[in-house]
Simulated scan of single mutants.
Amino acid sequence: MTAPLYDARDPRFRALIHPNARLHQIGSGFEWAEGPVWFPAAQMLLFSDIPAHRMMRWTAQTGCSIFRENSDYSNGNSRDPEGRLITCHHGTRRVTRTEADGRLSNLASHHAGKRLNSPNDLVAKSDGSIWFTDPTYGILSDLEGYRADPEQAGSFVYRIPPEGGEPQPVITNFTQPNGLCFSPDERLLYVAESGSSHDASVPSVIRVFDVTADGAISGQGRDFARIDAGLPDGIRCDERGNLWSSAADGIHIFAPDGTLLGKILVPEVVSNLCFGGERGNRLFITATTSLYILAVNASAAGWP
């Protein structure tokens, strides 16, 4: 008997999925797949295989291949407003931008004269600012980076100004901030709390923060949704403002009001996801050792 693909919890869920669609495994054999990002101009997906110290490429024509060896234990990837690759690295504990000639430009590595923990995931705002999370996962062991003592006072969310410069902490009340994304109008910032990975007392929640017109965080944030299977890692908003979150049993989809609409069930623990494909309506899923693709009735906020 074929395992179910969907777990509907709300009538609104049906509008987001295709009941007859199938989940396809399009890559496998990875150590821990993470950080998918789609490049429309090249019709290409890039993602990280963190412990393997490499970045991978997928296209419909060529399948999976190595994009970058010796990736400094890259994790989260995204695009800036000019379409350039921006990446978090655990090994060098920095955020970089890949230039047109392939050169890596350093965007952030220190705050207040001390090294960052291990930048994890990131997102660019339309004004050119870059926001990233900085938990300690990459320095807890030698598996996904290099074991070291943290130099920062905590695990924060940082903002790099549009003009560049030293990153500034904008959210400081997380145990381990992880995935993050903006609402379609960029007035809300969602951040995943994954501290339960090492401390069961930390709630597996996604929190939401108000963002002012000048790019500042207003208030201390509030709980938006709770993940009932594992913990939230990578998250994305679609064009309707629904939030799609990774979880231990697949993808959990929440309405803008925080209601769980339903789940897409995946046979491996999901780390991250992104929208892509020729029309933007394919969901790419990085899940432990594999890369999956699924046709959905949604696309990314701000697509393309």
Rank of each mutant, 00 (worst) to 15 (best):
G165A: 11
P51Y: 04
S65C: 08
D223M: 05
I251W: 03
N106L: 11
A148T: 11
D257Q: 02
G234E: 05
A60M: 13
L122A: 04
L104V: 12
A100S: 13
D10G: 07
R22G: 09
S71E: 11
H24I: 12
L231E: 13
E99S: 15
H252M: 03
A247V: 10
I26C: 08
S65K: 07
S105I: 14
E166N: 09
R279P: 14
S246Y: 07
R207F: 03
T2W: 01
E99W: 12
V270A: 05
E144A: 09
S197N: 12
V123L: 07
S271F: 09
V95N: 02
F67I: 10
T87V: 12
D223R: 05
G27M: 02
A8D: 04
T136R: 15
D210C: 11
C274H: 06
S78K: 03
M56E: 11
A100R: 14
L283H: 02
G262E: 03
R84E: 14
N20I: 15
H111D: 01
R57T: 08
I139W: 11
L273W: 03
G113V: 06
T172N: 03
G102S: 11
A100V: 15
D80N: 06
V95R: 02
T288W: 08
I171K: 00
W32A: 08
R54N: 10
K263N: 07
A247F: 10
L116I: 05
V202W: 07
C64I: 15
F47E: 03
G29Y: 04
A108G: 13
W131Y: 12
D127I: 04
T87S: 13
T212M: 13
K114A: 05
C88N: 10
I206G: 01
F67Q: 13
G76T: 02
